[in-house]
Simulated assay, not measured.
Amino acid sequence: MAGAGPATGWAPAVPGAGAGWVPAASAGWAASRSVPGWGVPPPAGAPRAASSSWKWALGGGAAVFLGSLLPFVTYTDLYGYTVVPGARLISAVFGAILAGLALGAGLASRTQVFYGLVLPAGLLGALGYGTFILLGLTGVHNDEESAFGASRTVTVHFDPNIGVTCCLAGCIVTAGAAIVGLRSSSLRSG
């Protein structure tokens, strides 16, 4: 290793510096080109990298939209019940709104406003879908009238299917991405 130098790409060993590989400046390496977070801090006035949390929020909104197109629930007790198309349409519109707000957070200069709207929407969506799932697992009482005019109460149980689970996961991801986005935007501005 005594003959190593710029021709081989290996820097000569510095006396008393200990063993280890140091990239040679002639090979195109410089301290300013080192990978951020790998020991060399960025300069004090350098702009921070943009947060990618809006992409996660956009994916969460897309998951809510796509979940509305998938099967919502599976009935275990009675057949003939379905989730009304209006509820699935509302879920699709809600997913599109979440995705639009996330896209606005990614493209706008004032991201805190959009993340401030995405966070409560994601939390309320997760609360709504989670409540819907729990009601189905515990049973919902439904009053029915028979063909002879007699009224009876039937408990309807249903199991969550891939659609409502996807909607719940999308809302959770969207709310988490909004929290990360709000934190990173406050760090950039502060």
Rank of each mutant, 00 (worst) to 15 (best):
L137S: 12
G106A: 14
D159L: 14
V164I: 15
A92W: 04
V156Q: 10
L119I: 12
V84D: 13
G116H: 02
V154C: 02
P160R: 07
L107V: 11
T155Y: 05
I97N: 05
D77R: 04
V93S: 12
Y115W: 06
G170I: 12
T82E: 11
I90K: 04
R88T: 15
G139C: 01
G95F: 01
S109F: 04
V140M: 03
A150R: 06
E144L: 15
G136K: 05
A105K: 03
T153R: 14
V83G: 04
G139K: 00
G128K: 02
A92I: 02
P85D: 11
V118W: 01
A87V: 06
Y115H: 06
G95C: 05
S91R: 05
T153P: 00
A96C: 10
N142I: 05
A108C: 09
C171V: 00
V118H: 02
T76V: 07
A126V: 02
G104A: 14
P120I: 10
G80Y: 01
T111F: 01
L78W: 07
T153S: 10
N161M: 12
G116V: 05
N161R: 11
G149E: 09
L134E: 12
A87G: 15
A96K: 03
A169H: 00
D143E: 07
I133G: 04
G149K: 08
Q112C: 06
A99D: 09
T155W: 00
V140C: 03
V84H: 07
S109P: 00
I162Q: 06
A126C: 05
A102T: 14
L123W: 08
V84L: 13
E145S: 13
Y115I: 03
I172E: 01
F114P: 00
G106W: 07
G130A: 03
N142Q: 13
V83R: 06
G128A: 09
C167I: 03
P85G: 15
I162L: 09
A147I: 05
L137V: 12
S151H: 13
V93H: 08
F148A: 15
L117A: 14
L103C: 11
S151W: 14
L101E: 13
L98S: 15
C167Q: 13
A147T: 05
L168M: 04
N161L: 12
L137M: 07
V164Q: 03
S91M: 13
L101N: 11
T82P: 01
L127D: 10
I133C: 05
T165Q: 09
G86W: 00
L135Y: 03
S91L: 14
V93P: 01
F148S: 15
A169S: 03
C166L: 14
A96I: 00
G100N: 12
A147P: 01
A92N: 04
A87Q: 04
H157M: 10
I97C: 12
L168T: 01
T138F: 11
G106K: 11
R152Y: 14
L89Y: 05
G163V: 08
A150L: 09
S146F: 08
G170V: 10
V164F: 01
I97F: 08
L137Q: 13
F94I: 06
V156H: 05
S146C: 08
S151D: 11
L168S: 01
T111M: 11
V156G: 08
L89I: 15
T82V: 10
L168Y: 02
S146H: 06
Y79V: 02
L107M: 04
